[in-house]
Design a protein around this nucleic acid. Structure first.
Lengths: 344, 344
DNA sequence: GTGAAAGCGCTAACAT
DNA sequence: ATGTTAGCGCTTTCAC
């Protein structure tokens, strides 16, 4: 039965006609150009409201060469860390009248380049979040992606970069455990391709150098609940009394697995996370972790992007990456090493 | 020192020039129009790759009257439920070559209309997720937002709607507790303006009608951790042995608060959540909840949207809202009512 | 099969 | 102060 009554979209021409002026004048009024006579401006505004006219953003974008939109590419939108970054970015950008377009590469590093390019073409800038692609590829791609802001990654190609000092954070967590009397530690590692995992590894190397007396074992891992949950056996086999999980998710999985086995935390084993996602405050026991200002990271990403978009010269911008220091958040999942286990 | 070497963006004209053809021909080739001579097509393609040419999406959008982008408006991007919907939507849309633009209303219902309108103008369609605006406002806005898909909301104005049967789910949870011998229950309610909270309330009315012997108390609440955490006193004061939390977040907050007070779950009190967010499997104890296929909801939202965008006639589309049934997920946070407390 | 030209909806330089 | 006109980068008739 016929198509629904399609109320044709109102265009600038309709308003011009109704107000009895040229579309140029309508455009001027809509953009707050004060060279228009007050009477006429009022007439135009009246016509616009009456017709419920709103300028077509696509038309404006083409004319102005900007979309007031920025893109973000994340490896996995189901990861709370990236969700928080997205949120911080989106909120901050909205404050300045910008919107965000999202692209999820699903951890497929080969897709990243294509997604990034596509997103960039539709937007005024791109935030690349923990890209999994190689350094070489990133550097090659960078020029075509600019203006671009990097999160948890750097590149020789000029681009602002926001980093988290995971190395420092993991060291603090390890020191925290040592301070509690633990001498046998284990690190549940993250994804191979993750740069942030590499930084943690580097930090732990330093830690080992400073603590030759401590036994620190490296265990294979990943970045989600399941990994933590499935690592119970490996953790127990390691004989460690203090476990550094790659992130809060892994820690929560581990906590859950240990609980099922009747192993008490922190009495029998201490567990630490990383990131301090909101959930970390509400686990049982509450999770000792290294707090990363994730939402602020997203917010800062926008601010750097905004600088890029505004100051085309880009000489006032800070050189080198901005580094965020994680803050140790001591809660109840860590405690003194148990007497029995400490001995053994 | 001078602006960076700005490699001017390659346009269709550049390719046309290089290939020695008109831009019309380049356009044809780029769009897979087979009326172009094979030899020429090859020449054009060569020129395009050599120049690394990619059609400008804004130009295409203006010419084609479509952006291959859909918008989603959510009340709060920090809520895992909306994050999961966004994710499902984004993944499904990406599969069909569409991108998603996000708008977060921060629970400010007055902002919703503006955000929705803005987003809609930049996109080919809009997904309105649990809108907080009034029925009247929604209905008035609907025509200008079409094509539009609603989540957790319906409207008389014609628009596909995806609903979750929260009423049924909460009844099942209540029945589950009754089956475990609980006779004193409490419901930690959600946000006032939330339609899904209203549905739960309706479901509980039905439950009460069927179980006059059960004492069911209504407690004020909200939708996040803090609310659950702060409700411990109210819950204890109610004397309930079984607590139905508005959602998993509230349940987790409550779990955490109860643990701090030394109250055992489920021995002393049983707790249920709602949604079955990924975390619910990994709380201590694991959380009994009503599982909602959230990601699938987002995916379905795209499918309905796709139908809308493709079949302009829209007569084959299913009438009335699609309803998703939550599924009871019995885990360890619920157990038999304790003898002492059961007595009253 | 291919080019010339119109047009998508808007902004801005240029006339007047 | 306002209208006319030329783009922005592309697709698509319409001639040839």
């Amino acid at each position: 039965m016929g198509r629904r009554a399609t109320t044709r979209r109102i265009g600038i021409a309709d308003v011009a006609l109704k107000a009895g002026v040229s579309h140029a004048t309508v455009s001027r009024v809509m953009n707050g150009n004060f060279t228009v006579d007050a009477t006429i401006a009022a007439r135009v505004r009246a016509a616009a409201t009456e017709l419920n006219y709103q300028p077509n953003p696509v038309g404006r974008s083409l004319a102005l060469g900007k979309t007031d939109t920025i893109g973000i590419v994340v490896p996995d939108l189901s990861n709370p860390t990236f969700q928080a970054i997205l949120r911080g970015l989106s909120m901050a950008a909205a404050q300045d009248g910008y919107r965000v377009l999202i692209a999820d590469s699903s951890e497929v590093s080969s897709e990243e380049a294509i997604l990034a390019g596509e997103a960039r073409r539709r937007c005024d800038g791109l935030v690349l979040c923990a890209p999994r692609m190689s350094d070489a590829e990133l550097e090659e791609l960078a020029p075509s992606l600019q203006p671009m802001v990097l999160i948890n990654r750097t590149t020789d190609a000029h681009a602002p970069s926001l980093m988290v000092d995971y190395g420092q954070g993991i060291q603090e967590l390890a020191e925290h455990l040592v301070g509690l009397g633990h001498t046998r530690l284990a690190f549940l590692a993250g994804p191979e391709r993750s740069a942030s995992n590499g930084l943690r590894l580097l930090g732990l190397e330093k830690f080992k150098a400073g603590h030759p007396e401590i036994d620190l074992q490296m265990l294979e891992g990943g970045s989600n609940f399941e990994v933590g949950h499935q690592s119970v056996d490996a953790v127990l086999a390691s004989g460690a009394t203090g476990v550094l999980a790659f992130n809060d998710l892994v820690a929560m999985g581990l906590l859950s697995g240990l609980h099922e086995r009747g192993i008490r935390v922190p009495e029998d084993i201490s567990v630490t996370g990383f990131d301090d996602i909101p959930f970390a405050r509400y686990t049982t026991p509450t999770l000792t972790t290294a707090a990363v200002p994730i939402t602020e990271l997203g917010q800062q990403a926008w601010h750097r992007m905004r600088d890029l978009i505004r100051n085309v010269p880009s000489d006032a911008a800070p050189e080198g990456p901005t580094v965020f220091q994680p803050r140790l958040e001591g809660r109840s999942s860590t405690g003194p090493a148990s007497a029995e286990r400490r001995g053994g």
